[in-house]
Design a binder for these strands. Sequence first.
DNA 1: CTGGGGATGGGGCCC
DNA 2: GGGGCCCCATCCCCA
Length: 590
Amino acid sequence: MDAMRITLPRLQLTVPMPMKIEKVAMSPGEDGLIGIPFPEHSSEILAHLNDQRRAGLLCDLTLTSRGARYQTHRSVMAAVSLYFRRLFGAEEGGGEGGGGFSVCQLDCVAPDALDALLEFAYTATLTIPSSGMRDVLRGAQLLGIQCVADACRDILGEKAEAEGETAEEQRSQHIATENMVQEQSRVDKGSRRKTDRKKVKNMIPIYINSSFSNPSPASPISHPSPASDSIRSQPFTLPPSPKQEELDQKIVQNGGSRMIREPGRGASLNGGLFHWLHERPLVAHPSPVSSLNDKLSEDDDVEGCGDDAMLIGSTSIPTSASDRGAAATAAGGGRKRKSQTPQQCPVCQKIIHGAGKLPRHMRTHTGEKPFQCSACGVRFTRNDKLKIHMRKHTGERPYPCPSCPARFLHSYDLKNHLSLHSGARPFECPLCHKAFAREDHLQRHRKGHSCLEPPTRRPKRKPDAFEDGSMNGDGREQSRQLEAVSLQAHSSAFLPRVLLDGGSGSGTGPPLMFPSDIERRSFALQTLAQFEPRRLASYPQLFLRGLDLREGREAEEEDPGETHSPASQRDRWADEVEEEIGEDEVEEEE
DNA sequence: CTGGGGATGGGGCCC
DNA sequence: GGGGCCCCATCCCCA
């Protein structure tokens, strides 16, 4: 249900839409200047630049590496790379602030690595073969792309090694960089045509301790504004700029066809792909509808499906929803399901249960907040939420604690509070046995990386304890055995196994990923599948794994028969870990 | 990292 | 069927 939370923070639908801007401006109590954030602006700019790069539009820089050519934009490269900043004199206090380079030969950076770094520059996504990690690290160091270099070192376990560099070494490397930049600059100023053929053979590996930060900071993937979408929908029909024509001619003169390499194409696909998403994925732009779907998928991954790619899921909506409801009823949740006609949202196709609930749901799309607090002007999408909000002004706290003077605004606050009195912590981590009073705290605990310490409360299982019949296999004993699965199982129990296996270092293994990027990759894959299937075709393994991964999560989270009782959750988690054990044992036998 | 408060969106029941 | 009210799950934010 929350699979997309990381990449899809709650949409601020009231802001980007022009008709809502007026509402914002008219909000009482907001005199003077107003700030209207467009959180998707930076990502859209980057995406447009990437489109231009792929189309060869407005490119004013060609990078070459061992025969491969990559068209790019100097401004982007200067924003990403300290090396290019200095090369172009674009660094703060720099010289002419632009330079006149058109071709830069970087034979010291492997083509695939350069390709990956370029892709990173335009998408904030680093996609490289795991076998090419060192090349990328080397390239990132050479070009002064610090965040990529740091990530590669982390992955390669060379953090300490890199940090162990002496200041003297870094100084010498820094000087080498300066010399390299100066040399490149001097020659290039002399003859731009000569630059095409010039080989920078004396590039010295450098470590630039820059403070580069991602040019596209994490921003919520929110719906694009209609205006931006209309722009995006227009094909690129602009004629090449004179500079572009010159550049193209130059490329032809140099005997090289224009080469916009796609990441991961060709030989680089041999090994297991390492796909690392830096910040948010920028592989493509979702349409407004799909954005809304994505937004909805925060809560219901299957239900919010309006695009063709997800039609299968869409057709299953009514069944799924009704089944879930029926299952909830059958599970003895308490409330009897009222016979009512579900309504389907025309925007996201989501099935809304309950008569009269569709308008309420639609406001989540439009951003309309018709209910305004007369005291502070805050607006709400729902009247009942405003009513609760008004309690803050009236001081009404209708939920008193029977055990103490505390009173609460919400019934669930009281419920949480009561658990403090009772000391009840019904939500226990099946692995470290840490107990929580609130389910969401346990979920947070499981999702985070806090659950990494080896279990200490219970002894390790005996090797054959389960087989010799001395154990009855009940849940408690099973839990003890689960603890013996080891730290790896502990940390991996809630991660798709393929991801962890990817860390084996094998070049042919599955992709290695950071756990926190699971959802991001999943989203990126889906977006890629929807908007750039051609590129996705280059990632067969990645695509399949991504979908498997996502389906796995959905299967886990969309189980129509699941209940949210602590006991049932423990059972499910125990099952997960049990499967983990089974897999481990199979591996041991092998 | 955890505990706690608050916000948000969906579903059930009722009028 | 529309809407109010309530409960619930989940998330975010802050200390």
